[in-house]
Design a protein around this nucleic acid. Sequence first.
DNA 1: CATTGACCTTCCCGTCACTGGAACCCCTAT
DNA 2: ATAGGGGTTCCAGTGACGGGAAGGTCAATG
Lengths: 131, 131
Amino acid sequence: MNIGDVSRMTGLPAKTIRYYEDIDLVTPLRSENGYRAFRETDLHKLAFLGRARALGFTIEDCRALVALYEDDSRESASVKHIAEEHLSKIDDKIAQLQSMRATLAHLIHACAGDHRPDCPILEDLGADITK
Amino acid sequence: MNIGDVSRMTGLPAKTIRYYEDIDLVTPLRSENGYRAFRETDLHKLAFLGRARALGFTIEDCRALVALYEDDSRESASVKHIAEEHLSKIDDKIAQLQSMRATLAHLIHACAGDHRPDCPILEDLGADITK
DNA sequence: CATTGACCTTCCCGTCACTGGAACCCCTAT
DNA sequence: ATAGGGGTTCCAGTGACGGGAAGGTCAATG
């Protein structure tokens, strides 16, 4: 299989697949013409990576997850631990975004949004720090 | 005022302030010794920028907001527009994170997290795409 | 046989908003 | 004289790719 086929099948851009090879996440063979030759296992691993990335795992998390995936003597606790750490980071981000969202929504609500210059949003951002 | 004072007063790292000068968000004067000499207006603008960044506005948004802040003939609608666009991007991000969170929480819940290798998380990530 | 067009290759730069670090200068106090 | 705590510039790195150039390869067509 060439990179285009793998790209179509996994939904990953060819650029991304080449990048994953670059950082040693996959190691496809090479055909005589120099093209990357992907095996079933490469395809499978790339699909795995695509799904893990879609869940927001970092590349390094993905590397660890793949290693566990291929380790028959893994303990599911190791996997769960990585997932839980990640979940907690997601929760942090959500909380931060919701806090921003609340402030912003409040300011937007207070702003007339008309042709006049008076604007509570700018007033808030420009509050004097020396007071 | 030197950069250290401004850093303390605004809470922005000195590195960040230098970066903001680099991209022309602020233009402090220079003392004879080559040190940056910040005026009240610079301080004020940097505080503005810090707050806007804390609300998640991009640097380019900040540039536009500062311009509006300094424009007496602005229309509050312009400000509100920027803020609403930003709010909608925040909402998109929150939605995406919550979707990840839901999937992830579900998988974590299904995983025993013990010494055995069986793991629904890895099973999900490794699902066969050819089927 | 030549050409077209779709594929593939490597390589390098750009993204975003900084952060770290090196190498160096300046100022004040001891 | 020295020590420390400022300040300066410049370069490189971050994460996870994406864009685009310059060129090689392959299958099908005129």
